[in-house]
Design a binder for these strands. Structure first.
Length: 236
DNA sequence: CCACAGATTCTCT
DNA sequence: GAGAATCTGTGGC
């Protein structure tokens, strides 16, 4: 296990490959409360705490890009070792980021759906700005898989990157107490037959940064609770 | 608040 | 040529 100086709270741990080498449902839960860190080419560090994930189980999962063992140029990264990133382009304009898990050649992955932004919010706001909304609210910056990627400048270039070794993007273990998790069916997979309704999405209960469409579909009312706080956290 | 349509282009059949 | 692990703006109540 390597350690690394965090910018705000002393030593934090960066997980090794074993952390990722588990089934998708386990990793989906495990990643909640961890921090996703992105270092831009100019050196600026952006990060956020993962608050919403979805598990894509493997060849048997009809909602997965690797259903039935499908293996193409696009989803090739799913067949890489656990801890690899799988970034794909969809709907003609959005990127989505997954963390590959399972064993080598077992195409399982966890989709990152929302973060509570921690570092680099001003830069994220720039990346997420549109003419009609030049300064998006903090709760909108990284809520939803496409938004998260835009806020952190995650695109094709980060497909297939090794999150265990990369200095551009990685995960750090959570420093939080026990988080109350909820599950729901996954979002946006209407044609996955019996897999549509399986509870393979996890999120922090009542968390304001969970993606909006998702909250609606899980029966949440627009609950606004406190953001996450570091356990024993020293305030900066 | 909710529902719906449109955007936009890649990927595989 | 169809469909996509999405998001946003618009229009209705």
């Amino acid at each position: 296990m390597r350690t690394r100086e965090a910018s705000d709270s002393g030593l934090v741990t960066r997980p090794n490959r074993r952390f990722f080498a588990t089934d998708a449902a386990t990793l989906a839960k495990r990643l909640i409360g961890c921090r996703l860190v992105r270092v831009l080419s100019d050196g600026e560090r952006l990060s956020g705490v993962i608050v919403e994930t979805e598990a894509y189980l493997g060849v048997q999962d009809r909602a997965s890009h690797a259903f039935g063992g499908r293996r193409t140029a696009r989803n090739e990264a799913m067949y890489s070792p656990p801890g690899t990133s799988y970034v794909y382009f969809t709907y003609g304009m959005h990127f989505c980021m997954n963390v590959v898990c399972g064993a080598v050649d077992e195409p399982a992955a966890v989709l990152l759906r929302a973060l509570e932004p921690s570092e680099g919010l001003a830069r994220m706001r720039l990346f997420r700005a549109t003419p009609s909304r030049p300064a998006p609210a903090d709760t909108d910056l990284c809520s939803g898989p496409g938004n998260l990627c835009r806020a952190l400048a995650i695109d094709r270039a980060l497909n297939g990157v090794d999150l265990v070794e990369s200095d551009q993007i990685w995960v750090e273990r959570g420093g939080f107490g026990r988080l109350r998790l909820e599950t729901s069916p996954r979002i946006g997979i209407p044609n996955a037959g019996e897999w549509v309704d399986k509870p393979l999405r996890w999120f922090v209960a009542g968390h304001p940064h969970v993606s909006a469409g998702a909250a609606a579909r899980s029966g949440e009312q627009g609950v606004r609770k406190k953001p996450l706080q570091r356990r024993g956290g020293k305030s900066r």
